[in-house]
Design a protein around this nucleic acid. Structure first.
Lengths: 168, 168
DNA sequence: TACTAATGTTTGTTGCGCTAACGAATATAG
DNA sequence: CTATATTCGTTAGCGCAACAAACATTAGTA
């Protein structure tokens, strides 16, 4: 919709139309905004770095899970990564399409698939881990080790508080 | 005692098929994930609190901006809040629909609109600020004042590093 | 006057988190 | 053994925030 009424009113033409790109204090003070901005930016930075090698976060989550727990059903992967089962389908599709995982029917329970990591997948995992580490380091550049530790500890505590169940 | 209807059964929990909802370490260690989880949760918590009064974050951003800088063009609001111009259209639509802001054509420059806050809008701003403060406090419950300060400082530094231009 | 730039708007895309529904397979109760 | 419930993978789609692109209108400027 739009306004058709242009019955020009007073509207002082000398209002503070200065070049103002200052962020309002009431906004700058919002903790949630600080958090959101930081997350948005780092998420984007990480996402772009991963995109350069054709990967996505979910890929790493699944590969890391397989690395630590071995062949798993998709339900297990979902539980461990926090990725919804519906989204896992696409993720496993992509990984399987690239030959990084194998998806086979479980003979013991024909409802489930056994997803296992291939050697190529393990290499992929290492590659992604490296990209993540490097990017992460760039993101945390302004902080010394103690501060990073501190930062991470605060976030851990916050998450424990917000998601007591461990999941997310 | 599981039934061995179909023979060839092995323990259903064999081959590492244990009940595992443990998050892989490689994931838990990712700073970006920590940040993302925290942001997702607090954002959701805040969003739900705001939804209870029919408000959204963008509303507060615009109202706060108008409160501090007075009547502004949408471009200015965009600059100051970080909300994209395309998204601002809808935000101003909503606020205007509720009588919280007025959108009038600027007689001095017919390209732009002058958005100004109404008395009802100012009251709305206070209401939202209160909800935000309360919710924020709940989110940060596990932290003492010093820690909150610290947390905010870290986030500020991170944001300055990630978005040196102040914008986002 | 012609070019350039700013403004508001519409439209659409992407990634992520999430819900609903469903068929197939399996487990459990009666 | 049968009826019911539950699990698993899958498809489809919603909602939201961030963002890109194009466009008409209007202003400034060479």
């Amino acid at each position: 919709m739009q306004q058709a009424m242009i019955d020009g009113m007073e509207t002082p033409d000398d209002l503070g139309y200065g070049r103002g790109d200052a962020t309002p204090r009431q906004l700058r003070a919002q903790f949630g905004r600080l958090l959101g901005m930081a997350a948005t930016h780092s998420s984007r930075t990480l996402g772009e770095a991963l995109a350069e090698i054709g990967a996505r976060k979910y890929h790493f989550a699944v590969l890391a899970s397989l690395d630590e727990f071995g062949p798993s059903s998709q339900a297990q992967l979902s539980d461990r990564t926090g990725i919804y089962r519906s989204d896992l389908v696409a993720t496993v599709n992509e990984l399987a399409g690239d030959g990084h995982v194998r998806r086979e029917a479980d003979p013991a329970d024909r409802r489930r698939n056994v997803v296992s990591m291939t050697p190529a997948g393990d290499e992929r995992r290492r590659q992604i881990a490296e990209v993540l580490a490097r990017t992460n380091d760039a993101i945390l550049a302004p902080f010394d080790p103690a501060e990073r530790e501190q930062f991470a500890a605060l976030l851990h505590r916050l998450n424990d508080h917000l998601a007591p169940r461990g999941k997310w």
